[in-house]
Design a protein around this nucleic acid. Structure first.
Lengths: 174, 174
DNA sequence: AGAGTGAGTTCCGAAAGGGAACCTATACGT
DNA sequence: ACGTATAGGTTCCCTTTCGGAACTCACTCT
């Protein structure tokens, strides 16, 4: 059978992975974000096979993440640019870069730094709470069923209930 | 030949993808983060083949992202838990979830919500600047060569120079 | 006319993925 | 004692995908 269909899973992470869930796609998006926007340049930079690159670019266009913009006619040649939807995947790339900087390149220092133009500083990305603005810790987050929650997965439902029970107990005893 | 080696690329994103660069691994980490921590439970929940699940768990343990903790002897049975390194990948998952919520589940509303325990609100994750604290826009970031930058990729070097030139011009004319 | 560039497509063998069956160790019901 | 269930894998086979090299097409440049 073909690759497991992730596009019908009721999970935002799975649906995102349906778009960028392989080793090459994020690297292609990284190149385009940096400003490497042409087929041959991406192929040379990544060392990806031309076949796979062609397939991935096509899939990203289908998903509305990239658009192909001609930079010349006779013969037609293209730049690949991110759409708004694609540029927003930059936050996923940023999270990956931050993790790699911290856990792989900690000693040597990172290959790339980021300058935040508005404030001018060389910075890191941090994840914050949209409500209180505090920096998030992964452990401070409790998942709750949302509007399109699908209770068909007993594993997930059971895990959420265990969580809720544990937190209720913690609140009660404190 | 085997899968392209990403573990010698001089790029934090590539090195992160060497650990989680496939469709299943992030979903396995998601399950473990939610509290689905046992082999059979993960297998049932995701519908992943037992073979691939076994391989992925092994690889994640090798990478120091997961640890196997016995919850009974006779016979030995295990829970899989994230290490600190693994828990930190939660920010990558969070970024994926945020993207999926916005670009895939916008109309129906998200399958899962997140409660931020310290402030009690149902929140979204936002990415902020470690220096000024402002919410980041992807377009406000300029990549710069860092301590372990490898100038061997002419494509990357050229792209960084183009960027720098464009920004200098913008600053000069404003 | 011939070489070079840019963007793909085609073909082949190797590797990875999915599925089902099998194995091991133990507890539980009758 | 016997069959069944639970938990966590491993093995085998077959299909799909991937990597690499070669080939095509449409121009431009010398």
């Amino acid at each position: 059978m073909t690759r497991m269909p992730l596009d019908d899973m009721n999970c935002s992470i799975a649906r995102t992975l349906d778009v960028i869930g392989d080793a090459w796609t994020p690297l292609i998006l990284r190149d385009i974000a940096i400003g490497i926007t042409r087929f041959d340049a991406i192929q040379r930079d990544l060392g990806i096979s031309r076949k796979v690159l062609s397939e991935r670019l096509g899939s990203l266009i289908e998903h509305g993440v990239l658009q192909r913009v001609p930079y010349q006619t006779k013969p037609v040649r293209y730049d690949y640019y991110a759409t708004e939807k694609g540029a927003d995947l930059g936050f996923v790339l940023l999270a990956m870069q931050t993790w790699g900087n911290r856990w792989i390149f900690d000693e040597q220092g990172p290959p790339l730094l980021l300058r935040h133009e508005p404030c001018g500083a060389t910075i890191e990305a941090v994840t914050a709470c949209s409500n209180c603005g505090e920096q998030l810790s992964v452990g401070d987050l409790t998942p709750l069923p949302g509007p399109s929650f699908d209770p068909d997965s007993p594993e997930v439902s059971a895990a959420l209930e265990r969580r809720e029970a544990a937190f209720s107990a913690a609140r009660g005893s404190s």
